[in-house]
Protein backbone atom coordinates (compact mmCIF):
# COMPACT_ATOMS: atom_id res chain seq x y z
CA UNK A 1 0.00 0.00 0.00
CA UNK A 2 1.10 3.52 -0.63
CA UNK A 3 0.85 5.39 2.61
CA UNK A 4 1.70 9.04 2.42
CA UNK A 5 2.72 11.36 5.19
CA UNK A 6 2.45 15.10 4.75
CA UNK A 7 5.28 17.05 6.26
CA UNK A 8 5.41 20.81 6.35
CA UNK A 9 9.05 21.67 6.29
CA UNK A 10 10.63 24.33 8.41
CA UNK A 11 14.12 25.25 7.35
CA UNK A 12 15.60 25.54 10.83
CA UNK A 13 17.50 23.12 13.04
CA UNK A 14 14.31 22.52 14.95
CA UNK A 15 12.47 21.80 11.75
CA UNK A 16 15.21 19.39 10.79
CA UNK A 17 14.63 17.37 13.93
CA UNK A 18 10.94 17.17 13.14
CA UNK A 19 11.67 16.12 9.61
CA UNK A 20 14.12 13.45 10.76
CA UNK A 21 11.32 12.18 12.92
CA UNK A 22 8.99 12.00 9.93
CA UNK A 23 11.59 10.19 7.90
CA UNK A 24 12.20 7.68 10.64
CA UNK A 25 8.49 7.12 11.09
CA UNK A 26 8.00 6.56 7.38
CA UNK A 27 10.93 4.23 7.07
CA UNK A 28 9.74 2.18 10.00
CA UNK A 29 6.20 1.69 8.80
CA UNK A 30 7.02 1.76 5.10
CA UNK A 31 5.26 4.97 4.19
CA UNK A 32 6.37 7.79 1.93
CA UNK A 33 6.93 11.31 3.18
CA UNK A 34 5.67 14.12 0.99
CA UNK A 35 7.17 17.50 1.81
CA UNK A 36 5.49 20.83 1.45
CA UNK A 37 7.81 23.81 1.61
CA UNK A 38 5.53 26.75 2.41
CA UNK A 39 5.71 29.78 0.16
CA UNK A 40 3.12 31.84 2.00
CA UNK A 41 2.67 32.24 5.71
CA UNK A 42 -0.71 30.56 5.73
CA UNK A 43 -2.57 27.74 4.10
CA UNK A 44 -5.94 26.07 4.23
CA UNK A 45 -6.91 22.48 4.68
CA UNK A 46 -10.41 21.46 3.65
CA UNK A 47 -12.02 18.57 5.48
CA UNK A 48 -15.47 17.08 5.06
CA UNK A 49 -17.24 19.55 7.30
CA UNK A 50 -14.71 22.22 8.13
CA UNK A 51 -11.93 24.28 6.76
CA UNK A 52 -8.89 24.94 8.88
CA UNK A 53 -6.58 27.84 8.24
CA UNK A 54 -3.07 27.21 9.44
CA UNK A 55 -0.92 30.26 10.07
CA UNK A 56 2.76 29.58 9.99
CA UNK A 57 5.25 31.71 11.80
CA UNK A 58 8.07 33.36 9.91
CA UNK A 59 10.55 30.59 10.62
CA UNK A 60 8.74 28.45 8.07
CA UNK A 61 9.46 31.00 5.38
CA UNK A 62 13.05 31.68 6.35
CA UNK A 63 15.81 30.90 3.86
CA UNK A 64 13.60 29.71 1.02
CA UNK A 65 16.61 29.26 -1.28
CA UNK A 66 18.21 26.53 0.82
CA UNK A 67 15.04 24.77 1.96
CA UNK A 68 14.76 22.48 -1.03
CA UNK A 69 18.43 21.51 -0.90
CA UNK A 70 18.17 20.73 2.77
CA UNK A 71 15.16 18.55 2.26
CA UNK A 72 16.80 16.64 -0.56
CA UNK A 73 19.95 16.14 1.50
CA UNK A 74 17.90 14.72 4.38
CA UNK A 75 15.94 12.51 2.02
CA UNK A 76 19.15 11.16 0.55
CA UNK A 77 20.53 10.47 3.98
CA UNK A 78 17.46 8.40 4.75
CA UNK A 79 17.63 6.69 1.37
CA UNK A 80 14.14 7.72 0.35
CA UNK A 81 13.45 9.30 -3.01
CA UNK A 82 12.51 12.93 -2.42
CA UNK A 83 8.97 13.96 -3.10
CA UNK A 84 7.44 17.40 -2.83
CA UNK A 85 3.94 18.67 -2.61
CA UNK A 86 2.86 21.61 -4.70
CA UNK A 87 -0.53 23.09 -3.95
CA UNK A 88 -2.76 23.05 -6.99
CA UNK A 89 -5.67 25.12 -5.81
CA UNK A 90 -5.77 28.53 -4.23
CA UNK A 91 -8.66 29.96 -2.30
CA UNK A 92 -7.09 33.37 -2.74
CA UNK A 93 -3.78 34.17 -4.36
CA UNK A 94 -1.92 34.08 -1.05
CA UNK A 95 -3.96 31.24 0.39
CA UNK A 96 -3.08 27.83 -1.05
CA UNK A 97 -5.21 24.77 -0.32
CA UNK A 98 -3.33 21.78 0.94
CA UNK A 99 -4.91 18.46 0.10
CA UNK A 100 -6.27 16.47 3.00
CA UNK A 101 -5.88 13.19 1.11
CA UNK A 102 -3.00 11.91 3.15
CA UNK A 103 -2.65 8.92 5.41
CA UNK A 104 -0.61 10.66 8.08
CA UNK A 105 0.49 14.15 8.82
CA UNK A 106 3.41 15.29 10.87
CA UNK A 107 3.14 18.32 13.02
CA UNK A 108 5.53 19.93 15.44
CA UNK A 109 4.10 20.43 18.89
CA UNK A 110 2.63 23.65 17.68
CA UNK A 111 2.37 24.41 14.04
CA UNK A 112 1.27 27.97 14.23
CA UNK A 113 2.07 29.62 17.52
CA UNK A 114 5.03 31.68 18.54
CA UNK A 115 8.42 30.05 18.50
CA UNK A 116 8.68 30.41 22.26
CA UNK A 117 5.96 27.83 22.63
CA UNK A 118 7.50 25.42 20.19
CA UNK A 119 9.69 23.49 22.60
CA UNK A 120 7.30 22.01 25.05
CA UNK A 121 4.42 24.33 25.17
CA UNK A 122 0.84 24.26 24.26
CA UNK A 123 -0.60 22.16 21.57
CA UNK A 124 -1.54 24.74 18.95
CA UNK A 125 -5.28 25.26 18.65
CA UNK A 126 -4.96 24.57 14.94
CA UNK A 127 -3.40 21.20 15.60
CA UNK A 128 -6.28 20.40 17.86
CA UNK A 129 -8.84 21.44 15.28
CA UNK A 130 -7.02 19.44 12.68
CA UNK A 131 -7.07 16.36 14.90
CA UNK A 132 -10.78 16.86 15.33
CA UNK A 133 -11.49 17.04 11.61
CA UNK A 134 -8.81 14.93 9.98
CA UNK A 135 -9.46 11.55 8.51
CA UNK A 136 -5.84 10.66 9.14
CA UNK A 137 -3.82 10.34 12.34
CA UNK A 138 -1.40 13.13 13.20
CA UNK A 139 2.13 12.52 14.31
CA UNK A 140 3.15 15.05 16.90
CA UNK A 141 6.90 14.83 16.81
CA UNK A 142 9.14 15.09 19.80
CA UNK A 143 11.24 18.25 19.98
CA UNK A 144 14.42 16.34 19.29
CA UNK A 145 14.72 13.41 16.95
CA UNK A 146 14.30 10.16 18.78
CA UNK A 147 14.33 6.75 17.19
CA UNK A 148 11.49 4.93 18.92
CA UNK A 149 11.80 1.19 19.40
CA UNK A 150 8.44 0.22 20.79
CA UNK A 151 4.80 1.23 20.67
CA UNK A 152 2.56 2.19 23.57
CA UNK A 153 -1.16 2.45 23.08
CA UNK A 154 -3.21 4.40 25.61
CA UNK A 155 -6.47 2.57 25.75
CA UNK A 156 -9.34 4.13 27.65
CA UNK A 157 -12.21 2.17 26.23
CA UNK A 158 -13.91 4.78 24.05
CA UNK A 159 -14.56 4.37 20.35
CA UNK A 160 -11.63 6.62 19.72
CA UNK A 161 -9.36 4.56 21.89
CA UNK A 162 -10.43 1.54 19.90
CA UNK A 163 -9.32 3.40 16.81
CA UNK A 164 -5.99 4.09 18.47
CA UNK A 165 -5.61 0.42 19.30
CA UNK A 166 -6.22 -0.52 15.67
CA UNK A 167 -3.67 2.04 14.59
CA UNK A 168 -1.18 0.77 17.17
CA UNK A 169 -1.62 -2.76 15.88
CA UNK A 170 -1.21 -1.60 12.31
CA UNK A 171 2.05 0.11 13.16
CA UNK A 172 3.24 -2.85 15.18
CA UNK A 173 2.56 -5.14 12.22
CA UNK A 174 4.31 -2.82 9.78
CA UNK A 175 7.33 -2.07 11.97
CA UNK A 176 7.72 -5.28 13.90
CA UNK A 177 8.23 -3.38 17.15
CA UNK A 178 6.71 -4.63 20.40
CA UNK A 179 3.36 -3.18 21.43
CA UNK A 180 2.17 -2.49 24.96
CA UNK A 181 -1.24 -1.29 26.04
CA UNK A 182 -1.65 1.12 28.95
CA UNK A 183 -4.99 1.57 30.60
CA UNK A 184 -6.07 3.72 33.49
CA UNK A 185 -8.98 2.05 35.24
CA UNK A 186 -11.92 4.33 35.71
CA UNK A 187 -14.22 2.56 38.21
CA UNK A 188 -14.23 -0.62 36.16
CA UNK A 189 -12.10 -3.62 36.58
CA UNK A 190 -9.67 -5.00 34.05
CA UNK A 191 -12.10 -7.48 32.59
CA UNK A 192 -14.34 -4.76 31.19
CA UNK A 193 -11.51 -3.60 28.99
CA UNK A 194 -10.44 -7.08 28.03
CA UNK A 195 -14.02 -7.93 27.10
CA UNK A 196 -14.17 -4.86 24.93
CA UNK A 197 -11.29 -6.16 22.84
CA UNK A 198 -12.63 -9.69 22.92
CA UNK A 199 -15.94 -8.55 21.46
CA UNK A 200 -14.24 -6.83 18.58
CA UNK A 201 -12.50 -8.56 15.72
CA UNK A 202 -9.14 -7.61 17.08
CA UNK A 203 -8.73 -10.36 19.61
CA UNK A 204 -6.51 -12.53 17.50
CA UNK A 205 -4.20 -9.69 16.56
CA UNK A 206 -4.03 -8.43 20.12
CA UNK A 207 -3.00 -11.87 21.31
CA UNK A 208 -0.40 -12.03 18.62
CA UNK A 209 1.21 -8.61 18.86
CA UNK A 210 0.57 -7.17 22.30
CA UNK A 211 3.30 -8.19 24.67
CA UNK A 212 1.89 -6.63 27.80
CA UNK A 213 -1.23 -4.90 29.02
CA UNK A 214 -0.57 -2.61 31.98
CA UNK A 215 -3.38 -1.40 34.21
CA UNK A 216 -3.26 1.53 36.59
CA UNK A 217 -5.77 2.69 39.19
CA UNK A 218 -7.52 5.94 38.44
CA UNK A 219 -5.04 8.11 40.34
CA UNK A 220 -2.07 6.52 38.65
CA UNK A 221 -2.16 8.50 35.46
CA UNK A 222 1.10 10.32 36.04
CA UNK A 223 2.78 7.18 37.23
CA UNK A 224 1.71 5.55 33.99
CA UNK A 225 3.18 8.40 31.99
CA UNK A 226 6.48 7.89 33.75
CA UNK A 227 6.47 4.18 33.16
CA UNK A 228 5.95 4.46 29.43
CA UNK A 229 9.37 3.74 27.91
CA UNK A 230 11.12 6.91 26.82
CA UNK A 231 11.82 5.50 23.41
CA UNK A 232 8.37 4.44 22.45
CA UNK A 233 5.79 5.90 20.14
CA UNK A 234 2.62 6.74 22.03
CA UNK A 235 -0.58 6.08 20.11
CA UNK A 236 -3.70 7.64 21.56
CA UNK A 237 -7.13 8.77 20.59
CA UNK A 238 -7.95 12.40 21.17
CA UNK A 239 -11.38 13.30 22.24
CA UNK A 240 -12.57 16.48 20.60
CA UNK A 241 -13.48 18.63 23.57
CA UNK A 242 -15.26 21.90 23.25
CA UNK A 243 -13.69 25.02 24.64
CA UNK A 244 -15.84 25.08 27.76
CA UNK A 245 -15.29 21.45 28.55
CA UNK A 246 -11.60 22.02 28.21
CA UNK A 247 -11.55 24.84 30.71
CA UNK A 248 -13.58 22.87 33.21
CA UNK A 249 -11.97 19.48 32.88
CA UNK A 250 -8.60 20.30 31.43
CA UNK A 251 -7.36 18.49 28.40
CA UNK A 252 -5.80 15.15 28.85
CA UNK A 253 -3.99 15.54 25.57
CA UNK A 254 -2.45 18.76 26.76
CA UNK A 255 -1.37 17.10 29.96
CA UNK A 256 0.19 14.16 28.18
CA UNK A 257 2.04 16.20 25.62
CA UNK A 258 3.45 18.59 28.18
CA UNK A 259 4.55 15.76 30.44
CA UNK A 260 6.17 13.28 28.11
CA UNK A 261 8.65 13.96 25.36
CA UNK A 262 7.76 10.92 23.29
CA UNK A 263 6.45 11.05 19.80
CA UNK A 264 2.68 11.03 19.84
CA UNK A 265 0.45 9.62 17.17
CA UNK A 266 -3.03 10.99 17.67
CA UNK A 267 -6.23 9.74 16.08
CA UNK A 268 -9.20 12.04 16.01
CA UNK A 269 -12.90 11.25 16.02
CA UNK A 270 -13.03 11.29 12.22
CA UNK A 271 -10.06 9.03 11.67
CA UNK A 272 -10.65 6.01 9.57
CA UNK A 273 -8.14 3.27 9.99
CA UNK A 274 -8.45 -0.06 8.32
CA UNK A 275 -6.33 -3.07 9.07
CA UNK A 276 -7.03 -4.75 5.75
CA UNK A 277 -3.90 -3.88 3.88
CA UNK A 278 -1.69 -4.26 6.91
CA UNK A 279 -2.67 -7.84 7.54
CA UNK A 280 -2.27 -8.72 3.89
CA UNK A 281 1.31 -7.53 3.81
Amino acid sequence: MNYKLLHIFRNTPFGRETFLQSLYFCKTINAHPVVYIPKTDKFLMYFANDVVQVNLDNSFLAFPDTAREHVIALFDEAGIPPRFYEPKNFTASTLPDISSQFDYMCSPRSISDLSSKIGLGLLGPKVRRMIKQATFPILIASPVFKAWQSISVFFGGSANAMNALVLGLKIAIASGFPLKIYTVLENDNEDVYRDMVRNSELEELVDQYVIEWCFYESSGFDRMLYEVPHDSLIVLGAYGHGVIKEILLGSKMEHIQSTVTNNLLVTGPNCRISLESATQA
Partner: peptide, 22 residues
Protein backbone atom coordinates in the same frame (compact mmCIF):
# COMPACT_ATOMS: atom_id res chain seq x y z
CA UNK B 1 -4.45 36.80 8.36
CA UNK B 2 -6.91 36.78 5.51
CA UNK B 3 -6.17 36.18 1.87
CA UNK B 4 -5.96 39.00 -0.59
CA UNK B 5 -8.79 40.33 -2.73
CA UNK B 6 -12.29 41.56 -2.17
CA UNK B 7 -13.75 38.20 -1.37
CA UNK B 8 -16.43 37.50 -3.95
CA UNK B 9 -14.20 35.17 -6.02
CA UNK B 10 -13.35 33.40 -2.78
CA UNK B 11 -17.03 32.77 -2.11
CA UNK B 12 -17.59 31.53 -5.66
CA UNK B 13 -14.57 29.29 -5.34
CA UNK B 14 -15.81 27.88 -2.06
CA UNK B 15 -19.19 27.15 -3.59
CA UNK B 16 -17.91 25.61 -6.78
CA UNK B 17 -15.09 23.57 -5.37
CA UNK B 18 -15.34 23.22 -1.62
CA UNK B 19 -18.99 22.65 -0.92
CA UNK B 20 -19.39 26.20 0.36
CA UNK B 21 -16.90 25.87 3.21
CA UNK B 22 -15.76 29.27 4.45
Amino acid sequence: REGAGHGVPEVIYAVSRRGGLL
